[in-house]
Structure formats: C-alpha cells, structure tokens
Design a protein around this nucleic acid. Structure first.
Lengths: 156, 156
DNA sequence: AGAGCAATATTGAACCTTCAATCATCCCTT
DNA sequence: AAGGGATGATTGAAGGTTCAATATTGCTCT
C-alpha cells in the first residue's frame, strides 16, 4: 500500500516567483488605488466600479443581480454596499416593473457627479502604477491570461 | 483661461479590457482559492501565506515587522491575525532578545502540520485555476510585470 | 546623560464582508 | 391551478480589516 494523498505538481521556482510577485503586486496596487481614491474623492474603488457599471447602463439603471454579476460581488455584499450608497444619496433603488422580486438600481445625478470627479484620479493611478509598467505586448498577454482565467472560473 | 484639471490619459479599449479581466479574475481566483482551502483545511489563504513565510525562516521564527513586510500586511492586520492563530495554538509569540520592542513569532508543530495538510490543496488550486491557463512565456511576462509593479510601489 | 524623534507592536472602535437563514415571487410540471 | 423547486434580494450576526491613538523601546545628537 502506498500513500493515499497523491503529491500535487508543486510550483517550479519560476512559477513560485511569478505567483508571489502577483500576490504582492495585487495587494500593493489595490491598497494604493483605494487609498488614493478615497482620500481625493471619498469613494472606494469598489464603489467606483459600481458607479461605472451603472453609468454605462441604459438609463443608468441595472437590476441588482446584473450589477452583482458585473462587478463580481456576492448578492449580499452588493445589497450592503448599495444600501450605504443609497443612504449617501448617490443612487436609488426602485421596484422592478417586469419582475416583482427584482430591484432596480439607478445612479442619481449626485452619483454621476461623484463618478466624474473620481474618474481622473482613478484612471491616473491605474495608468501610473500598472500600465506605465507594461508595453503593448505585456498588456495583450495579461489581458489574454486574465480573460481565460476569468471565463473558466465563471462557468465552473 | 482653460480648465484647471488636466484630462488624464484615459485607458484605450485594449487597456480597459485587460484591466477589467484582471480585476474580475483576481476576485474570482481569490474567492475560489480561499473557499476551497478553508473548506478542506480550515485555513484562509492569508493564514496560509503567514505559515509559509514562517516555515521558510530559520527556526520557523520571524519578527512581526519582517513577517508583515513579507506577507504585505499592515502591522495592525498582522497583529490581529497572529492573535487569532496564537489562540488556535498554531504559532506562539516570544520576546525578542535583541530588541525589547520586538516580538518574535514562531510556528508551532501544530502550525507546521496544518501547513503541510493545506499545501497540496492550495498548490493544486493555484495550478489548476491559474498556471494551467498559461504557457511558459505567459508566466515569464506575468512575473516580470508584477515584479516591476511590486518593486515600484514598494519604494514609492 | 538626556532630549527628541523614529520604530515596533498593540488596542479598540468603526467599518466592511461573509455566511446562513429568510421571505417573496416566478417558473415548471403535472 | 397547485405544488415544488429555483431565483431575487435582504437581514443580522459573526468575523476580518482599517484607522487613529497609545505605549514602549531604541537611536542620534549635542
């Protein structure tokens, strides 16, 4: 009888190095973007992403479930986040006409203004800290890899 | 007189696509790894990383500040996390002989056993969900980019 | 030596996320 | 049309993270 738990294929040194760089860069980048945006505009990056999706939707309105899907949040998390933003007057919730279970979420003018104020800060940060460190080829590779990972995990 | 706030260089469509893929893949990947590891070994990925660093250190011991640096956590966050793990008996804190301000953190045998149990689960997940989606060239590019981003943000 | 400043680590409160439970509505099947 | 399961959204509690304040010790300069 041999061991029951088969050894996994461990990461080779190159993979380990890449994985740690990825983890570290992630945390540092997110922390930096979040802090900067919050300081200069009072929004978190998570809030910002919610606003972006709403602002792109027809009538600046989306159902909670669609919004949750787009920003990759759990429903519960989105409910809490939207509750806070609604209290701040940046969006409103309305009954969904087609489906009585549904709730529509609409960006208010104040919310749109907040987004417009935040956008330059955020984009400048993303460019400076991430895209300025890459050439076009890097961007293509990163995008392709992440798109593959995302798609696969989504339909798992 | 012209506008005071200069327009930032916005992201072009390729960059925007890459950025969103990156954000989404990040969240999905982290969520998946965290949930799987927690279910099968009771550890979060954050805990796991702490254990990895301690296990690699001489005498399985590091100072809090060094550990915080290595896992890219704030000191406060690490204090709370280590407090929980100490209560669980997976590590212990000791006075630092050289520097009375310092605190040494040492992985216990129970902690090392927990790490050994968790490692195959974690590595399998990372491989399956991330590295199996990349070829060697992708790994090199991702590693190089993230290393650059990390280094730059660290000494900012 | 001692004053003043920097670094180490912790604390508690506020805040956010996660998780399981709940309620209402819709859809499918018979 | 009624039962039963799936879907949409929310709730509250538990747990984790962040932030500002604090205490302690070390370092430097005169």
């Amino acid at each position: 009888m041999t061991t029951n738990a088969p050894e996994p294929r461990w990461l080779d040194p190159q993979e380990q190095w890449a994985w740690r760089a990825y983890l570290d860069a992630n945390r540092l980048l997110w922390e930096r973007l979040d802090r900067d945006l919050d300081e200069r505009s009072g929004l978190s990056v998570s809030d910002y992403e919610i606003f972006v999706r709403l602002s792109e939707a027809p009538d600046r309105t989306l159902r909670m479930s669609q919004l949750a899907e787009q920003v990759v949040h759990s429903r519960s998390r989105l409910t809490h986040a939207v509750g806070r933003l609604e209290r701040a007057g940046l969006l409103v919730r309305e009954d969904c006409p087609d489906d009585r279970r549904g709730v529509l979420c609409r960006l208010t003018d104040a919310g749109f203004a907040a987004l417009e104020a935040a956008a330059p800060v955020h984009v400048t940060g993303v460019r400076e800290h991430l895209f300025d460190q890459m050439d076009a080829e890097d961007v293509a590779v990163l995008g392709a890899v992440m798109d593959r990972v995302r798609t696969r995990l989504r339909d798992l």
